[in-house]
C-alpha cells in the first residue's frame, strides 16, 4: 500500500485488478478543501489510458510488476519460450501476450518482458530489429526515387513493404513500432 503522495510518473499501481503505470500526476486542492491527485494512467497489459482521481486519504495499491531482460529461444505450440539473461530461468509466454508482435521474434532477440504477479504479461521489443529477406521479386537497379515498393517476406514469415532495389537474401532494419522498413544493413 502507498499513499497518494507517492503517485508520481512511472509508479506501477493496481487499479481494478489490472497493473497500470502513472503517466501524469497532478496535485490539486481547490478551495483550501480536500486534496486530490488527478492522474492519467496507462494499462500495462492493454495500453489503454484512463483518467483517475484519488482523494488524499485514499490508499494506493502498488502493482507487483517487474521488467526482466529476456532472450527469445524458440516457439512451442501456443507458447513462446524466453530465457532470463541473468538467471537462465525459462518462461513460457502465451501467444496472445505478443499478438502481432510475434512476427518480429527472431532467435536470440533480447526483449524486456513485463511480469505481473510473477507472470509474463507483456513483451517490449527493441525499437529496431534486423531481419533477412527470404523471398521477394528481384531488385530493380537505380530506382531509388519513385518511392514505389513491393512486398518482401522475412525469415519469421512477416511481410514488409520494401523499395524496388532491395534483393532477396539482404538484411533489413525494421521499426517494430510501425512494422515499416527503415534501411538495408550489411551483414
Amino acid at each position: 500500500m502507498a499513499s497518494t503522495s507517492d503517485l508520481k510518473k512511472n509508479l506501477k499501481i493496481l487499479v481494478d485488478g489490472d497493473p497500470y503505470t502513472v503517466v501524469e500526476a497532478q496535485f490539486v486542492k481547490p478551495g483550501k478543501g480536500t486534496a486530490f491527485t488527478k492522474c492519467r494512467i496507462k494499462n500495462l497489459i492493454t495500453g489503454s489510458v484512463l483518467e483517475r482521481t484519488w482523494r488524499s486519504n485514499e490508499s494506493i495499491e502498488l502493482a507487483n510488476t517487474e521488467n526482466r531482460k529476456m532472450e527469445f529461444l524458440y516457439s512451442e505450440g501456443e507458447h513462446f519460450v524466453f530465457m532470463d539473461r541473468e538467471t537462465y530461468e525459462q518462461f513460457h509466454v502465451e501467444a496472445e501476450v505478443l499478438g502481432d508482435d510475434s512476427r518480429w521474434l527472431i532467435d536470440n532477440l533480447v526483449t524486456d518482458v513485463l511480469f505481473f504477479n510473477e507472470k509474463p504479461v507483456g513483451v517490449e521489443f527493441p525499437t529496431f530489429v534486423e531481419m533477412q529477406i527470404v523471398h521477394c521479386e528481384p531488385g530493380v537497379r537505380g530506382d531509388t526515387a519513385t518511392g514505389a515498393s513491393k512486398p518482401a517476406t522475412l525469415i519469421t514469415g512477416a511481410t514488409v513493404q520494401v523499395p524496388l532495389f532491395v534483393n532477396e537474401g539482404e538484411w533489413l532494419k525494421i521499426d517494430t513500432r510501425t512494422g515499416e522498413y527503415v534501411e538495408r544493413v550489411k551483414k
Binding site: 490539486v28 481547490p30 478551495g31 478543501g33 480536500t34 486530490f36 488527478k38 482521481t53 482523494r55
Partner: peptide, 11 residues
C-alpha cells in the same frame, strides 16, 4: 458531504 462536494468539484 465535503469530500463528495469537492469530488464533484474536481471531476
Amino acid at each position: 458531504w465535503e469530500e463528495a462536494f469537492f469530488t464533484v468539484f474536481v471531476e
